[in-house]
Each structure stands twice: as C-alpha cells, then as structure tokens.
C-alpha cells in the first residue's frame, strides 16, 4: 500500500491537470462556437463540459481518449480497417520479430566479441558508433529502400526494430559474459572443462541477469522502431499509420488513442520480459 498510494496520488494529479488543461486549451474554439450559436454567459460547469466534448479538440479529455480506444478495439470487427486492435497487432508482430532477431544478433555478436580479441577491438567501437546514427530518423527511408528491392510488409519494419534492439543486448551480454571472476574460470580449468562447457555452465548462466535487463530496454525500443518505420507506408497499417493519418486529418482523439495503445503495448511487453526474468532468476537461485 505504501508504494501504491504515492503513485495513485501523482496519477490523480496528472488527470486533474489534464482536465484543467483541456478546458484552457479548448476554450478559444469553444468561445467561437458559442459565439456562432449566440450562446452568451454559459455557466462555467456547462462550459467545461462543452470543452470536454468537442469533435476535434486541441487537447482531448481523458474520457474521450478512452472511449475512442474502447470503441475502436471492442466496438469494431477485428478485420475492419479502423480497428485499433488490428493496427496494434500489425505493429506488435513487427516489434516481436525485430526483437527476436535483434536479441539473437546481439547474443551472437557478444559471444564473438568475448571469445575473439580482434572482433572485440574492431567491432565494439563501431557498434557504439552505430547507435549515434539516428536510424529512427531514417527508418521510413530504409523501409522505402527495402521495398524497392522487393522486401515489403513485416520484414523492413522488423529490420529497423532489430537494428535498434541489438545494441543494448550486445553491450549487456558482453558485460555479462565477462562477469565470471578469474577464480571461477580457474575452477573450470581445474575441472578440465573445454571452452564449450565453460560457456554453457559458467558464462551463460552468469550473463542471464544482464541479458534480461538488456531485453527490457530492447523490447521497448523495438516497439518505437516499428511505430516510426510505419510512418512511410500508409497502406500497410499499424499504429504509426494511425498517428500519421490522424495528424493529416486533424483527428486529435485518434492520435491520442493510438498513442495510448502504443504505451499500453510497451508496458505489457516490458512486464512480460520482467516476469520471465523473475521466473528464470528464481530457478537459477538469484535473490531479488
């Protein structure tokens, strides 16, 4: 209870601030509307409710966003082009594919770096440099380029997610695979363990906590990568497309709904990785 109460307080404060901000930001347009309708001296409470019920508000009120989310997920057929559940699924599948590829690539690179001196010295600086390139910013272009050579749909988006998510995994896994101490490696030598056994019985288990910590970061940026990659291909669908069409048509409620769905997806994905982490750590006897 001690942990929930402060969070709830802050959330309530944010909600209250949001409603107040909605009144303030939507007021100018509402005044124009009321002026046209020859309504004068609207009582404040009624005026507030009007600002919370506009069609294309500058800032939609929270309940408008949530009812839009409800209508666009539960209220529509899953196959409908306007169903947010469908778009969320499109984004989710690209995210997951990219995340799996990125984690695999990251682990392979980390193993190579830990076991080969030349790989460490030549790859590591470039892996770090690769992340200062704003790949997200050029993601739509990469998607178009890959589309030109026949790669369309899921794969280009997943490649962007992969590029983003391999980095934390490499860095974390290199740290993790190097975490066994000299005394533990010496013990393996006294057992006459071959490199294969040293890897599976010592290095890999020692690196698992780092792997999960990196995967939590990785899956969050995988989702961001998938959403941004969708911005270039309005026909393909996905949450990014909902953001884009919403912004072109001034459908603010649609933008906020897509944004909240994306946030919810991120939260669920990170929570799933966290749950897997706790399960594996408990089996390996790590104390939380």
């Amino acid at each position: 209870m001690n942990r929930v109460l402060p969070i709830l307080t802050i959330l309530v404060a944010i909600l209250a601030f949001w409603y107040a901000a909605a009144i303030w930001m939507n007021a100018p347009w509402q005044n124009i509307l009321n002026g046209r309708a020859n309504l004068e001296n609207v009582p404040f409470l009624e005026f507030a409710q009007q600002t919370w019920a506009q069609d294309k508000p500058v800032l939609p009120a929270p309940h408008q966003v949530f009812s839009e989310i409800w209508n666009a997920t539960m209220g529509l057929e899953f196959t409908s082009r306007r169903s947010l559940a469908l778009h969320a699924w499109i984004t989710l599948s690209a995210t997951l594919l990219g995340f799996v590829l990125g984690t695999g690539l990251g682990v392979v690179l980390a193993v190579a770096i830990v076991h080969n001196d030349a790989a460490d010295r030549s790859l590591m600086p470039w892996i770090i440099a690769s992340q200062t390139i704003p790949i997200l910013a050029i993601a739509p272009m990469v998607v178009v380029g890959l589309g030109a050579i026949g790669l369309t749909g899921l794969v280009p988006k997943a490649l962007i997610s992969m590029y983003l998510s391999f980095f934390p995994v490499v860095v974390g896994m290199v740290k993790g695979l190097r975490s066994p101490e000299a005394i533990q490696l010496d013990l393996m030598r006294t057992y006459d363990a071959n490199p294969w056994q040293v890897f599976w019985k010592l290095r890999w288990p020692a690196a698992l906590p780092m792997l999960f910590a990196s995967m939590k970061v990785g899956i969050a940026i995988s989702l961001i990568g998938a959403v941004v990659a969708e911005l270039s291909n309005a026909a393909g669908g996905g949450l990014g497309v909902r953001l884009l069409t919403g912004s072109y048509n001034g459908q603010t409620i649609q933008i906020w709904a897509a944004l909240f769905i994306a946030a919810g997806l991120a939260a669920v994905l990170v929570a799933i990785v966290g749950a897997a982490e706790r399960m594996v750590n408990a089996r390996n006897g790590v104390r939380a």
Binding site: P6, L11, I224, V228, T252, L259, A262
Partner: peptide
Amino acid sequence: FLKAGLLPIGNFMSALPIIGIAPIMVMW
C-alpha cells in the same frame, strides 16, 4: 512521497514511444 510517486511513472514514461507526440506538438 513525491519521489515514490514520480519515479515509477518516470521510469514507465522513459520506456514509452514518446516520439508519437510529434504530430500533436506540430498541431500545437
């Protein structure tokens, strides 16, 4: 009290695709 409330929310927000607010900011 504020720290206990803001820190988990801040952590949560750092994981979100905040970049998605770009169209909203362009409107505002």
